[in-house]
Nucleic acid binder design. Structure first.
Lengths: 253, 253
DNA sequence: TGAAATGAAATGTTCGAACATTTTGATTAT
DNA sequence: ATAATCAAAATGTTCGAACATTTCATTTCA
């Protein structure tokens, strides 16, 4: 009899052509996303929702089933329904897989910034960026190390149109993806990866401390926002003996 | 009143602790997977299923909802329920991406078998296969070409415990994955990929027509069945100048 | 005090019934 | 023959009711 105070959020209309359970689903979802119910906390029981919207239990259960399907809430027979911690959009990105892989190998990940500058997109050798040529961007060149040994040379290009002022952010403790998500509320929708084997040129051979011409693993990523716009592109060259790229393909991709 | 003849496939037990709708769901799914209902064809209407299992409509609807969720059937208000063309489990695999990529580049994919033999799992250099060392398997070594130019050297190891007699199959027109799916009804659940850059050894340099020591892209795949068992492992070495590996990471993996 | 029994609350399962909506095909009227 | 109408069939939505099962807190008993 507590949360009844906040239910319903918006009224529902039984005469609307859109089913009641769907109206209720939308209303409850809105409340979850607006943080009306604390993540991890209790969600109102079925009967309470029934009374709040003045509908039958079946109808409420249909709405709730969708929320469960969306991974927004979790149910336990006998215990109740709980709001799930929002699945963070920052959970997947290349930075993390590098740091993670280093830790799995028992190495301390570390990063040394070689250069940071503002500029315009230079699309040479990068077909994906052709269309964005000349747009203002933010360039970071970094050397990534594991246990102080060089493992990767990485160049990131961040389009600044959607995140002005990003050059002033601190990248030592937060990843680029965390900053995009928390500071600019930009939602990353997709990352394309391209992996190639290349021979080390003089510059990178020197940086990575390998012989010129020895094999390097090139990993190119292009990051897309919700609306399909490119927000970032990175080119990483890994020492072949220190790094491998891995993915899992599931049946239901 | 036609399909009633085949329903139910197995009897359901109302006194069982497993819910009726789940028993019915399993039974119907089994029938779909065994091809009792023609793909693309009509699925029995709700009421017919109700009578066949002697249960209420709600119960049948719960079972059906799961089948819809599994993409096994499709429903249309007023028209009926239809069996979906099976989402082919052969749709995703390395073979296809090779053939596809060749076609995208305007090259004709082609494959030359270098050796086929029965043997036991030799796990040297392959940690994933350690646990399966000594198990009987089927080994294929192939050279893959695009427009008659060598592009990839591939070695496949197929565990034969789950697919006895596979060595007698014809691999020229069907992919390994098609055979596993259609002949043995084995469902592939997951494929792990590992990508590395390596230097060409003498043997492969010769086969792929490149200089010894030049970079090659190594792609290792491990294929898992529904039950988590490994069914296949492959090691492919690609010419770095003719091939690149690509994937897409989506928000909702 | 500690353990067992009880009961309330929540979700899970199942039935029956009604009415709405969509589609298809048959019937009817032009 | 063609078009409009209508009825039947199928899925979609919604209510009410009951009972099962799980969990948790409270009460009771040794």
């Amino acid at each position: 009899m507590d949360s009844t105070l906040v239910l319903p959020y918006a009224e529902v209309d039984p005469k609307s052509p859109v089913p009641l359970y769907h109206q209720i689903y939308l209303d409850l979802r809105q409340m979850i996303q607006n943080g009306i119910f604390a993540p991890g906390g209790m969600f109102p029981p079925e009967m309470e929702i029934c009374h709040a919207y003045n509908v039958g239990r079946q109808t409420v259960r249909q709405a709730i089933a969708r929320l469960v399907d969306d991974d927004l809430i979790e149910r336990f027979a006998g215990r109740g329904t709980f709001v799930r911690e929002q699945p963070s959009h920052t959970q997947f990105f290349l930075d993390r897989s590098f740091s993670q892989q280093m830790r799995e190998l028992g190495r301390k990940p570390h990063s040394r910034t070689l250069s940071i500058e503002m500029g315009t997109v230079n699309a040479e050798n990068i077909p994906t960026l052709q269309a964005l040529k000349g747009q203002p961007c933010f360039l970071i060149e970094r050397l990534r190390l594991g246990d102080e040994e060089p493992i990767c040379h990485q160049t990131s290009t961040v389009l600044i149109e959607r995140c002005p002022g990003i050059e002033g952010q601190d990248f030592t403790n937060q990843s680029l993806y965390e900053i995009l998500s928390t500071q600019y509320h930009l939602i990353i929708n997709r990352i394309d990866h391209v992996v190639r084997a290349v021979a080390a040129d003089e510059y990178r051979a020197d940086l990575l401390n390998v012989a010129e011409g020895s094999p390097l693993l090139f990993v190119g990523t292009t990051t897309y926002l919700d609306d399909g716009e490119i927000i970032e592109h990175s080119a990483s060259y890994y020492r072949a003996d220190r790094y491998e790229y891995s993915t899992t393909q599931t049946c239901c991709d």
